[in-house]
Simulated scan of single mutants.
Amino acid sequence: MTRLAIFDVDGTLVDSQGDIVASMTGAFQAVGLPVPARAAILSIVGLSLDHAMVRLAPEADTATHDRMVAAYKAHYQELRVKAGAASSPLYPGIREAVEALAARDDTVLAIATGKSRRGLLALLENHGWSGLFASVQVADDHPSKPHPSMLFTALAETGVTAERAVMIGDTTYDMDMAGAAGLSFLGVDWGYHPPALLTGAAEILSAAAQIPDAVLRLTGEPA
């Protein structure tokens, strides 16, 4: 019986905080607003960009938010083109953990991310992961996390039931999205939200090597 492991990207698979902070800095400078603190910027990782801008600059109007989103995307793309895979490096052990799950005949993988499709596909190509994920859900096609639309679509596309699926992520947005969709949630402690906030997690992992066994436990079979 097939199981589904759905991964968040930023703060879970890749450490993209350098490019995120630099791009958000560029977005605020582009419209003449003071740049938020690094902690504030990282707190919105996982949200779609339009929601992130409203959260970080609530005093700005819609037109300004739109300019900020465009500036952010332009900065991020420039950084990605310059650095390639080094722009958003995989966390230690992530490649081995993800590819171990992908190698199982009874397991399919998906992604649910606040990134754009263009940005995500470039990232996957940079890391040699094009085609590895059976379902790819991005901000272009869904309401922002924690709305469960991404997860419902991933379940529908793969034909897996919620009881046989697990969401793996680092933020409360991932956790709340999983809860709204009726999925188990695996938290990771190396991302951008403090692990203490991940109160709805079935488990909180401290190493990528723990992911495969935890996915098997939470989807109804022993490791």
Rank of each mutant, 00 (worst) to 15 (best):
E78L: 02
A100F: 01
Q137L: 11
D50C: 06
I204Y: 05
W190I: 04
E221L: 14
A30K: 00
M1K: 10
E157Y: 13
R104E: 12
A209G: 13
D10V: 01
D140T: 13
L218E: 03
D174N: 14
T113D: 14
A5Y: 00
G200W: 04
G182F: 07
A27S: 09
A134P: 04
I44P: 02
L124W: 05
A165V: 14
S88N: 15
R117N: 00
T62N: 04
A162F: 03
V14H: 02
P34A: 05
D15M: 01
A207N: 10
L109D: 00
L121E: 14
R3S: 11
G11R: 07
D10W: 02
P143S: 10
H142L: 14
K115N: 12
E221N: 07
K82T: 15
I168L: 13
H75I: 00
R67C: 04
D176P: 09
E163M: 12
P148Q: 06
A207S: 15
D50F: 01
P222M: 09
D106R: 11
V31D: 00
D140I: 12
S130R: 15
L49T: 04
Q29C: 11
A97T: 02
L205M: 04
L13E: 00
A165S: 15
G119P: 11
A165Y: 05
M150Y: 13
A40D: 03
I111M: 08
Q137C: 05
A162C: 12
R38L: 07
E59C: 06
T153G: 09
H75C: 11
P212Y: 01
P89C: 09
L33D: 00
S48R: 05
M68Q: 10
T25L: 06
I168N: 03
L121I: 08
A110Y: 00
A207L: 07
T25K: 07
G220N: 00
L49D: 10
A134K: 12
V160L: 11
P58Y: 10
V81N: 14
A37R: 11
